[in-house]
Design a binder for these strands. Structure first.
Lengths: 95, 95
DNA sequence: CTTATATTTGACAATATTTGACAAGTCATT
DNA sequence: AATGACTTGTCAAATATTGTCAAATATAAG
């Protein structure tokens, strides 16, 4: 399960909401929310924002998890060189 | 200029090779190599491997730069949350 | 300046990937 | 068996990416 998906599921279950309720709010199929929670599909940036609003969650926190998932996806198939590549990529952030 | 592009250009110029010579070897248009060197287009994984071979460079090193570019591309449009997301993504590498 | 060669640029068609809906499926409860 | 919640697989449409082509722009030499 993805970072974002896990968080969304936690938030949703804590508030006793159904997948279809979240789906209705952000106007997508229930199946899509299910997939997002399980990390089978990526949410769009806009969807993350809408989910955050509906679940009364911190938008920036969810977007951060969403971005972390995207970063992880880039290196998941390159485990041998991932660490070194991350070190290089990190330098850009310190500037 | 991308990490990979910069490195390729250095290697190529040090060996006095023309864009079209590299292009011929990896069987693509000259314009594409030009774009790859300037970071306007991403090389495919296979292309990186072929370029490394032709330029007698360390394949793993070039692939690492290639992956670093991909990682950077994911967070370049999210500068505010990039650092925190990278921290989260990094955890996966320590496991 | 003119020619020749190298590189860059922008537009485009071809490909590839991603997206979300739909229908059918499982699982649990009644 | 019927209902409700969630999951799964498949598909067409939308979107994004790729690489080529032709034209534009450098760069260098005579």
């Amino acid at each position: 399960m993805s970072h974002l998906g896990q968080k969304i599921r936690e938030l949703r279950e804590k508030q006793n909401l159904l997948l279809r309720q979240v789906a209705a709010q952000i106007e997508v199929d229930t199946a899509l929310i299910s997939k997002i929670e399980r990390g089978e599909r990526k949410a769009s940036r806009q969807q993350v924002i809408e989910i955050a609003k509906y679940l009364k969650a911190n938008e920036e926190e969810l977007l951060t998890l969403w971005l972390a998932d995207k970063i992880e996806a880039t290196f998941v198939e390159e485990p041998n060189i991932a660490y070194q590549a991350m070190k290089i990529a990190n330098k850009k952030l310190e500037k």
